[in-house]
């Protein structure tokens, strides 16, 4: 058990002490002792939880078990789950996620993230490792912030010396914004860019050829 939590939480009747015990026993294997996330062996990889401030969200995750995570509804009592969730949101979650700034987040995203994830945050194919940078459209703010600190898989870590907590919050704001951006000017074609545009252009050129054939037939059939 990490000593850091005991020093913070103090007396034995504190729910955080119990939450810490549950966390250490059931969560730390995949999420790390400090909730910093574990990567490497994919089957036990768990995301960084240091931006999970939403108690209800964490509690649901423990109960339901999203994605690869198992459900703890049968293994743990309701009190265990509540304490563990409280421990996560109050003690593990050290990234405040406050004072984010959308346009600053965009600047930082273009500087640090877009080279793999694209400015449209829809992911990109990379030449190394055969790994594609994932689409971020379904990720929560907490997962985005956690991933920045954690560096899952081949993604680099961005420690506080590189990106401050406020900057992490800004990047999360930007990603959330671009997940469902206003899209003036019609269908964005999943932001695939000039490749999709070129395809559409050729569809039009071929259609114009068909139109020319139709005109030459006197507009019949």
């Amino acid at each position: 058990m990490p000593a850091a939590w005991s020093q913070r939480t103090g007396n034995a009747g504190d729910p955080f002490v119990h939450g810490e015990e549950v966390f250490a026993q059931h969560c730390a294997e995949c999420h790390g002792d400090l909730g910093q996330g574990v990567s490497g062996v994919v089957s036990i990889a768990g995301p960084n939880l240091q931006a999970e401030h939403d108690l209800g969200h964490v509690l649901t995750a423990i109960e339901v078990g999203p994605s690869h995570m198992p459900s703890f509804a049968r293994t743990l009592s309701v009190q265990d789950m509540r304490d563990a969730a409280g421990f996560v949101t109050h003690k593990i979650a050290v990234i405040p996620m406050e004072d984010g700034n959308l346009s600053q987040g965009g600047e930082l995203f273009r500087m640090y993230c877009s080279a793999c994830h694209r400015t449209a945050v829809r992911g990109g194919a990379l030449v190394f490792d055969g790994v594609n940078a994932p689409d971020l459209t379904t990720k929560s703010r907490a997962l985005i912030a956690g991933a920045i600190r954690w560096g899952p898989g081949p993604m680099p870590k961005f420690p506080p010396a590189v990106l401050s907590d406020q900057q992490v919050a800004s990047i999360a704001d930007y990603v959330k914004y671009v997940q469902h951006p206003p899209s003036p000017g019609g269908s964005p074609m999943n932001w695939y860019g000039p490749v999709a545009e070129g395809f559409v252009a050729w569809v039009v050129v071929v259609s114009m050829i068909v139109v020319a054939m139709w005109i030459e037939r006197g507009g019949k059939g």
Binding site: E107, A115, V195, E197
Partner: peptide, 19 residues
């Protein structure tokens, strides 16, 4: 969506127009 040009930034899926 692309943002202003910055010589140190780039994105995958960066293509010229089809021609």
């Amino acid at each position: 969506v692309y943002g202003p040009y910055n010589p140190v930034a780039i994105l995958p899926g960066a293509q010229p127009d089809w021609y």
